[in-house]
Every structure is written in structure tokens, then in C-alpha cells.
Write a protein that binds this DNA or RNA. Structure first.
Lengths: 251, 251
DNA sequence: GTTTTTTATTTTGTATGCGCAGTGCGCCGT
DNA sequence: ACGGCGCACTGCGCATACAAAATAAAAAAC
């Protein structure tokens, strides 16, 4: 039956996991990473059956993953017409960044009050990983880890609804960056991330907020509103997961 | 037994709908309204099969509706153990209100800039309906409409991520109000809602924000967040009796 | 040759069946 | 009689099967 790929290994150590539903998360992480890596171009149709074949799971799982991605506005779910990779417009990007600024301000203020030493250590660890990813040239992982840093920061703020919202915003931001960031423009946000941690550790609220707002400005200013190109073929995009290049099981 | 309803009519005109997936939304709205009406007590188990029987749909639909409700933290989805009506703690309520204040401030500022005449008219219409519901004594509908007012206001702000977040916050707030609001204390928020609309129409940003913050204060002050009414958490309920819980409290 | 209608194929939406995990109860051992 | 163990029951997770909708294609009419 499904002899496409049997173990369904995770793409990296996608921090999103840790839940019970394993398969969901794995498929979710794979697709999300593929989008971030720009192996899936905006507008690409995400056929449930094709994805099911590729990941060796039924459409039920695919559908859940897509539903989740849709909720984070990373894919667009058109009724009766399937899912496509979201292609955020400039206006949508602006709205996301507006919300990001609002949320990040609140998060930093709370984090200064509530962040524990362990959380700060964990944050530093994540920044190091982020830096390593970029120095390895793994841009997709870097963007993802950069997002996870901000998510972790939200967790340190200790406000559950904020974390949930931040998760969605970070996903969308990652997609926007993947789409609009100009070339190899040294997405060296990890440096600013470290400064943020230092300021939080110093419990300097004003400084943290200031740094964060500048961080947002920098991300914003790195965006370039012209670039779009990537693959359309699902099998090609996920070829590194496949054992056989061509599947000929189904009639 | 229960007479299962056959045509699946909507509970009121649940404003959430208007989408494509009809059955999802209907089931979602029914369950949500039942929770708001407190016909479903916090902690009540929501069996997929039973709900499917009641609504005349398969577990697939029920599952989607529950998943949606879970995402809005209105029900709690325990892996392999089913769904139960959420019972937000006081701390969770505080977190929701913190986020609400942040979001409402942003929304009002944006709404002052962007709200159109049609949107204001629509808002007034909704407030009238809200008032009617309360005067009819339909508390559940009143709470729901009050929430939908705030959601509509978010839409008038013209920021999609904020709307999405607001939807989740409003759902949780409604649940919290349903649980914690003291008695029949005439949840006369519609009056303040009208004032808000007037101030928006006058494009008086400072006034709108001020009114909104006071509105939040009023909602807050109506809740008795000091004494918990009920809880599904046995440990919490009998904490004053328990010295050592018998149940395996691993993890 | 172009356009429109009809049909066929593909793809999503919904329902159901099977297997497994979680839970409670009864049985047995001490 | 009490505590540990295993069995049966309930109910969800996942896969599959079926039905409806949309798209693509083909054929017919203009």
C-alpha cells in the first residue's frame, strides 16, 4: 500500500510538535517548512490526494494539517476548490506587521516582568541555533527559528491568548519574509534577538520595547515587494522525502 | 430519548455563518450557543457520537466543530479522552481581559480612521438587536450579540489578523461572562456600545479609546472573579479536602 | 473557427468501519 | 477483607468508501 516513505521523520526539530497528534504535526511542519523554503510557491495548489500519497497518510491527516495552516493564513482554503499556498499581498503584510508591533510591545513588557532565568537561557539557545542555521545557509530553518524565538518570547510573557495570536502572526510573518525579503540580505536578526534577551535580563522595560520596535522596523525595511518564484510541482518539492521518484500504485 | 432534529436549522441567525461550510457552522453555532446559554455546564463531556446523533450529522462534522471550538478555547480537547466544555479559570479570564484591552484599544483607534457610514449603521443595528435580546430576557443571545458587536467593530478597523484574534477573544469572553457574571445584573452594555458608535462617528479618537477602556472596566467589574462557581477539575474543587490525590498525577 | 452545451474526469466533502487507547469493573490472590 | 491484576466496554483516531461539486475536455451548433 503506502510504501512512499514509511517512517515520516520530522523535517528538522520542528518545535511546534510536542503534542499528542504526531502525524498531524509532522505533515503540518513539512508543508510549512516547504513553504518557508520557497519550494512551494504562493498560489501552488495543495491537492489532498497528492499530499496524502507523498506523506503516506490518508487525506484525513492532510486535511487537518491544511486546516491548521489555513487558520494561520499560511494556506488559503477555498471551499470545494482545494487549498493553495497563501500569497499575502502587500496590504496583508502591512496588517500583519501592524498587529505584530502591537503584540510584540505587549509581549516585551510582560516578558520583562515574568521571564525566568530558564526561559532566558532557552531563548539564548534558540538564537544560537538560529545563527547556526543562517551560517549554514539554511535560510528556511533560519526564518523558522527566528519565528520560534518570537513565539518563545511570547510564552515567556505568560499570556495564553497572546501566545496563540503570536503563533499565527509569526507564521504569516515567516511566509511574508520568505516571499518578500530581498535576496541574501543577511537576515541577521539573531544579533538583535540577543540584544533583546540581554535587555530583558536587565529588566529594562523601556529599552526592551525600544529594541523590539527597532527590530520590527528592521524586518520591515528588509522587505522587497517584487520577488516571486518557486516550484509548482508537489512531487518535485517533496522529492527528498520520496523513495521512489514515481508512484504508480493507484489506477 | 431525544427527538433528533431533522432539518438542522440555525439557532438564531448566528452571525458567524455566511460561509460556505454550512453544516460545520450550524453545529458550531448550536454548541456555542448552548454553552453561552449555560445549558451545557463547564466540564460537560461532548461525545462525538451523541452530538452526531442529535444533529443528524456524522462524527466528521462534529469533530470539525469541536476542533474549531477548541481553537477558541471554548471547549477543551483532551487527546483520546474526548471534548469537554471549557471552564476558564480566573487567571485565564484575566489573561483574556488583558488581551482584550490591548486589542480593543487598537481596534478603536483604527475604527475611528476607517469606519464607514454603512458599518456604523450596521453597528447601530446590532446594538438594537442586542438591546432587544436583553429586554426579551434572552441572556444567551444578548451575550452573543454583545460579542458580535465587538467583532463587527474589529471588522470596521480593517485589520484581518486583529479580527481573527478578536473572534477568539470574544468567544472566550462570552464564555467567561456566562460563567462569572453575577446574577441578572442587567448586562446593559448596549448603552455603552451606542456611545462608542457615536464617538467613532464623531471621529474623536481619544474619546473612543477612553470609552472603550471604561467599557472594559465595566465588564470586568461585573464579574465576580473572586469566587469560582464551578469547575471540572476535581483537584481544584476538593483541594481543601485532599491531601494526596488518588488519581495518577503523572506529568 | 469560435462558442456553447454536454459529458467525463478529477477533487473535495461526508459518512462509515475498524482498530486501539482509556476507563471502570470484576476476579483472584494474599 | 483488601489490594493488585486483567477483562470488557466505551468512544476516539485513522483509513477508506461513497457522493457531490468543480474543472477539463469533447462534441455539436452557429
Amino acid at each position: 500500500m503506502n510504501d512512499q516513505l514509511q517512517p515520516l521523520k520530522k523535517p528538522a526539530r520542528a518545535g511546534k510538535a510536542g503534542r499528542s497528534g504526531t502525524q498531524d504535526d509532522i505533515v503540518y511542519a513539512h508543508i510549512f517548512e516547504a513553504i518557508l523554503e520557497q519550494r512551494l510557491a504562493p498560489g501552488t495548489k495543495l491537492s489532498e490526494e497528492a499530499l496524502g500519497e507523498i506523506f503516506g497518510v490518508s487525506r484525513t491527516i492532510i486535511r487537518r494539517a491544511l486546516s491548521r495552516l489555513a487558520h494561520e493564513s499560511v494556506v488559503l482554503l477555498r471551499p470545494n476548490r482545494g487549498a493553495v499556498v497563501a500569497s499575502p499581498t502587500v496590504e496583508e503584510a502591512r496588517q500583519v506587521f501592524f498587529s505584530r508591533r502591537m503584540v510584540e510591545r505587549a509581549i516585551t513588557e510582560l516578558a520583562v516582568q515574568h521571564a525566568t532565568a530558564e526561559q532566558l537561557a532557552e531563548l539564548r539557545h534558540m538564537v544560537r541555533e538560529e545563527r547556526d542555521s543562517f551560517s549554514r545557509g539554511d535560510r528556511g530553518a533560519g526564518i523558522r527559528l527566528s519565528g520560534e524565538f518570537h513565539l518563545k518570547l511570547a510564552e515567556a510573557a505568560g499570556n495564553a491568548p497572546l501566545v496563540s495570536f503570536q503563533r499565527s502572526l509569526v507564521s504569516q510573518t515567516s511566509l511574508i519574509i520568505a516571499q518578500y525579503e530581498s535576496g541574501n540580505r543577511s537576515h541577521c536578526s539573531y544579533d538583535e534577538h540577543m540584544q533583546l534577551i540581554d535587555a530583558i535580563e536587565a529588566r529594562d522595560a523601556a529599552q526592551v520595547v525600544s529594541l523590539m520596535m527597532h527590530h520590527m522596523d528592521h524586518i520591515d525595511s528588509k522587505l522587497n515587494l517584487d520577488e516571486e518564484s518557486a516550484s509548482d510541482d508537489l512531487h518535485a518539492v517533496f522529492s527528498h522525502l520520496l523513495k521512489k521518484p514515481k508512484v504508480a500504485a493507484k489506477g
